[in-house]
């Protein structure tokens, strides 16, 4: 079994989009759009280098490139030059990967969502609170078994001003559960 760990993700290119034209604009850029709100497309595992596209609502999207990827840098709308109905959203999130044995025990201590009961085949995007902080969570396959037989790693994003608090707090829980925390250096 993989050891429990919480790892801060190195800075990845990311931005958001909202507006009535956002979905069509993404398709025009050759980027697949998740069919339903609160679902995602993209990397099947944390090591997969595919672009992540999360649909946060009917017309709001969050995109994150892989490490070393250059897709987003090429297509991001320039400030003040956005197409009609396509509104860029600055995203400076802090993000982590939570994975390994006992990950559900960690999540049970910090979040009110029953992650073990999720059907991951639907690729759900979870927007919830984690110890008082609004977070975006994407469970990905490839981790250890948990709950009703599904397996997942958990990618977690939050507003950067909550980053030190959320990282330290989650890290404390992970360490108590026998795992490792690799945070962001100053």
């Amino acid at each position: 079994m993989t050891a429990l760990s919480l790892t801060a993700r190195t800075s990845l290119e990311r931005f958001g989009l909202k507006g009535p034209g956002a979905a069509d604009w993404l398709l025009a850029q050759g980027i697949g759009v998740p069919p339903a709100p609160n679902t995602w497309l993209g990397p099947a595992t944390p090591d997969d280098e595919t672009l992540l596209v999360a649909r946060l609502g009917s017309s709001e999207f969050f995109l994150e490139d892989s490490a070393g990827g250059s897709v987003l840098a090429a297509i991001e709308p320039k400030p003040g030059a956005h197409p009609p109905g396509v509104y860029p959203v600055l995203r400076e999130d802090v993000s982590w990967l939570l994975t390994g044995a006992g990950v559900v025990d960690v999540l049970a201590q910090v979040c009110n969502v029953d992650f073990a009961a999720l059907d991951l085949t639907h690729r759900p995007v979870i927007m919830t609170l984690m110890i008082g902080v609004a977070v975006l969570v994407v469970p990905q396959a490839g981790g250890e078994a948990f709950g009703r037989g599904a397996s997942a790693n958990f990618r977690i994003w939050c507003d950067p001003t909550f980053g030190p608090y959320l990282g330290e707090s989650l890290g404390e829980v992970v360490r108590e559960c026998g795992g490792n925390y690799r945070g962001v250096s100053a």
Binding site: I131, G132, V133, P160, T161, F162, G163, P164, Y165, S169, E172, V173, A186
Partner: peptide, 14 residues
């Protein structure tokens, strides 16, 4: 519990 105390810091904190 663990007495989580939500705190926000600006990026210039350090």
């Amino acid at each position: 519990g663990r007495r989580f105390n939500v705190e926000r810091r600006t990026p210039v904190d350090a």
